[in-house]
Design a protein around this nucleic acid. Structure first.
Length: 576
RNA sequence: GCCAAUGUAGCUCAGUCGGUAGAGCAAUUCACUCGUAAUGAAUAGGUCGUCCGUUCGAUUCGGAUCAUUGGCUCCA
């Protein structure tokens, strides 16, 4: 049975769930029930509001149906017959779906037990082949994913070939919950939100701010080293700027309402691009000064719909690690390859090794010269090739203003995150009439590429917390070592060691609590401090430290000088 | 924004079939001076998210609202 694909098994599980729902709620109207990455869902319309208790009953019903090894039977109907059948059952959503089946195509139904469904299949032979299932959650979802359509009730489930695989998946979910950056952010005192401040607006606490500052410094240094210049631009700009950029026409709903100053409307920026363009426009540009690579940690505000906010991963105020590359057509290929190489090198530094590019091409509605599109796409393809990566292509998935590459990185527990984006823009250079003087003395339109490497600092920080499970590597740890005196008698020695380590540039604290060593160790471990330095009578007498690290466990005694050397090496290497 | 759920001490949670609440951890104080994941005792801490209504009386019931959570839509 192992040849049956997960997808077929999961799709069949969706049918079985629908069958179980029909048993409990005969009046249910059905929409569709496809397979998902780890399971399946099915959308229903029914009077009754489903509750978690219903989920249990439905799951029980499914188990029974699976146990009975009911055969899946396929049969074909003509259009008129199919319509008659669905009308008789009052399956209005199915009737809508039937309209999607092209004229002349075979209309197939699958039945399993008492449940019969319009479906193109394929399915397992009988319900016993479905395997292990578990219903996970209830949700609302729009018919056809369109917010103007009625909202249906959706049940999500997971399905695996065996109980062991299901258990492993549930364990992974537990692990993900354990790493949840919102939970760790509170536990480790990294950041918070305040109802007084507003939803989606992050307050960075000292430790979180410290880590942020460290990787922002790293980011700046790497940018200078790799040929970028840094900019600072204002947080607000007049309406004329956003009229020129087109944001007021296309993106107004995503912007915070304007404030009026001296009878002019000022908008808080949702993007940095227009400001970078204004820097470009501040004087005449020659081909001799291209390429320009301008980066900024630019804080933007976007009015995200209330329902989409999610911890640090989706917020309303965030800092983009933005850059714009402005260059000539001759330079574009090298520039793109370089952006991709640089992006990969940064991700590697944080211990992300599995990185996958996704290429998005020209959509039906697009602006800009098709020849430029082709050249841009070609440069993106070549860059991916040069980096030795495979990429997935999303045909027509680009923005109206240009093609793009997005990178997805896989974290320590195998989850994929969309982060880096490298996007061509054929829109803004036109709107702002950006030009440079070429070697022919004439004006030319430059290429412009937007690039955000982390995406946003907030989002990246959230991903980092989950990637490291809160245990930041030594170079990023806000507190790198904690000295744990066995009793108060060793406090003087502890402070002397602290002074010595601090002088060497290490971030060290002394645990002054009047508590047992066990309690101090527990406290330091909970705070994810990488190095624990135990000092008792013996160590104080011999100028030693009892070293215990998060990575290597107990290392025995070491002099402060030896410890400094060890820690500095680890920091220098940015070991993850 | 839409569907659903949740909101009780700093944190995690219990509880009140309507008579203004309780635990553990954390905090504070005191004692203990301790050798690798929780020393003991005492103290303090809550307008039961907010507003409106029903009621003699609301943390509990109803409505609205805000926030959060899981999804949907969105992320030109």
């Amino acid at each position: 049975m192992s040849e049956i694909s997960q997808e077929i098994r999961r799709h069949s599980a969706a049918h079985i769930m629908a069958a179980a729902v029909k048993q409990l709620f005969p009046a249910a109207k059905f929409d569709i029930g496809p397979a998902t990455d780890n399971g399946f869902y099915y959308d229903f319309d029914l009077e009754h509001r489903l509750t978690p208790e219903d989920l249990k009953s439905i799951e029980k019903g499914m188990r029974k149906l699976i146990g009975r090894k009911l055969p899946f039977e396929r049969f074909e109907l003509g259009r008129a017959e199919a319509e008659a059948k669905l009308s008789a059952d009052n399956q209005t959503f199915k009737l809508e779906r039937l309209k999607d089946v092209p004229e002349g195509a075979v209309i197939t139904f699958y039945s399993c037990g008492d449940f019969c469904d319009l479906c193109r299949g394929p399915h397992v032979e009988h319900s016993g082949q479905i395997g292990a299932v578990k219903l996970m959650s209830l949700a609302g979802s729009y018919f056809r994913g369109d917010e103007k359509q009625p909202m249906l009730q959706r049940i999500y489930g997971v399905a695996f070939a065996t109980d062991e695989e299901l258990d492993a998946y549930l364990k992974m979910l537990e692990e993900a919950a354990r790493r949840d950056h919102r939970k760790l952010g509170q536990e480790l005192d990294l950041f918070s939100f305040s109802e007084q401040v507003g939803p989606g607006l992050v307050l960075w606490h000292p430790k979180g701010a410290f880590i942020r500052n460290l990787f922002e410094t790293f980011w700046r240094e790497e940018h200078y080293r790799n040929g970028y210049d840094l900019l600072y631009t204002p947080h607000i700009g007049q309406s004329v700027l956003w009229e020129t950029s087109g944001h007021l026409d296309f993106y107004r709903d995503g912007m915070y309402a304007p404030m009026q100053i001296d009878e002019k409307d000022y908008y808080v920026k949702p993007m940095n691009c227009p400001f970078h363009i204004e820097v470009y426009q501040s004087r005449l540009r020659s081909y001799r000064e291209l390429p320009l690579r301008w980066a900024e940690l630019g804080t933007v505000y976007r009015y995200e719909k209330s329902g989409v906010l999610h911890g640090l991963l989706r917020v309303r105020g965030f800092t983009q690690d933005d850059a714009h590359i402005i260059c000539t057509p001759e330079q574009i290929e090298d520039e793109i390859a370089e952006v991709l190489r640089f992006s990969l090198s940064i991700w590697t530094a944080f211990g992300f090794k599995d990185i996958k590019p996704y290429l998005a091409t020209r959509p039906a509605k697009a602006v800009g010269d098709p020849e430029r599109w082709a050249k841009a796409l070609d440069s993106l393809r070549k860059a991916v090739e040069k980096a030795g990566l495979d990429c997935e292509v999303d045909e027509g998935g680009g923005a109206f203003y240009g093609p793009k590459i997005d990178l997805k990185v896989r974290d320590a527990i195998g989850r994929e995150w969309q982060t880096t984006t490298i996007q061509f823009d054929f829109n803004l250079p036109e709107r702002f009439d950006m030009t440079y003087i070429g070697d022919d003395g004439k004006k030319h339109r430059p290429y412009m590429v937007h690039r955000a490497l982390f995406g946003s600092i907030e989002r990246f920080f959230g991903i980092l917390v989950e990637h490291y499970a809160g245990a930041f590597p030594l170079w990023l740890a806000p507190e790198q070592a904690r000295i744990l005196p066995v009793s108060e008698k060793q406090l003087d020695y502890a402070f002397a060691v602290k002074k010595e380590l601090r002088a060497a540039g290490l971030r060290v604290e002394v645990d002054e609590q009047a508590a047992g060593l066990g309690a101090k160790i527990k406290g330091a471990r909970n705070a994810r401090v990488p190095y624990l330095l135990v000092v008792g009578e013996k160590e104080a007498a011999e100028n030693q430290l009892g070293v215990r690290t998060r990575r290597e466990g107990e290392l025995g005694s070491m002099t402060p000088a030896a410890l400094i050397e060890k820690m500095q090496l680890e920091i220098q290497n940015k070991d993850c």
